[in-house]
């Protein structure tokens, strides 16, 4: 009902607004082994999966800007990382046509890992001292956050498919 009124872009913005409201008060407090699910990063991953690289990049850009608001690092850093992540995931999974069920959680995990590593790499290049760079700590986060996001990727992909009104034959979503 709401979806029909606000249109495709409005639905995506609604989804991002929902993530803004959920991530801090709820998901950040559900720590699994000292890391938490990152819906801001998961959104461009599932957008790339469901709707392709262009949509993944756009959703990553908006989601990243929203994520940047409370962070002490340079404004635009998350937006840059999530834009590239959404585009990369969209470009890679375009080759997977109507894949099996596990394509979605696997993409969620791998896309999150790509995003976290890009984050650390770009932060190092742009001299963002608040982003951790210790290889062991980063590897740990990549694994734990990837697993947490893999679990959430199925409902996130369903929500994103609703938002972008994608064809039901999207990879892993058939």
């Amino acid at each position: 009902m709401i979806g029909a009124v606000v249109g495709r872009n409005g639905r995506v913005l609604l989804l991002i607004l929902g993530v803004i409201l959920l991530q801090g008060p709820v998901l950040d407090r559900v720590q699994v082994a000292r890391a938490h699910p990152d819906l801001f990063l998961l959104l461009p991953v599932v957008a790339g999966l469901v709707a392709g690289p262009g949509e993944g990049a756009w959703v990553g850009f908006i989601s990243g800007l929203a994520a940047d608001v409370p962070l002490p690092t340079a404004f635009g850093l998350s937006a840059l990382v999530f834009t590239l992540t959404g585009f990369a995931v969209g470009s890679i999974v375009q080759t997977l046509i109507e894949g099996p069920w596990w394509v979605v959680p696997l993409t969620g995990a791998v896309g999150t890992a790509i995003g976290e590593l890009l984050y650390v790499g770009i932060a190092a290049v742009t001299d963002q001292s608040l982003v951790i760079s210790d290889p062991k700590a980063v590897a740990y986060i990549v694994v734990v956050a990837g697993m947490a996001n893999a679990i959430l990727s199925v409902p996130a992909a369903i929500a994103m498919r609703w938002a972008v009104n994608a064809e039901p034959s999207s990879p892993g979503m058939a």
Binding site: G52, P53, G64, G76, L80, T83, L84, S91, T126
Partner: peptide, 25 residues
């Protein structure tokens, strides 16, 4: 054509992000 448009989109967005990072830094 869709692929080219996606690449163009991501290039524009990356430029915007880099500009924002530069201004903020």
């Amino acid at each position: 054509r869709s692929g080219q448009r996606s690449r163009f989109t991501v290039m524009v967005l990356v430029m915007v992000c880099l500009t924002l990072i530069t201004i903020d830094t």
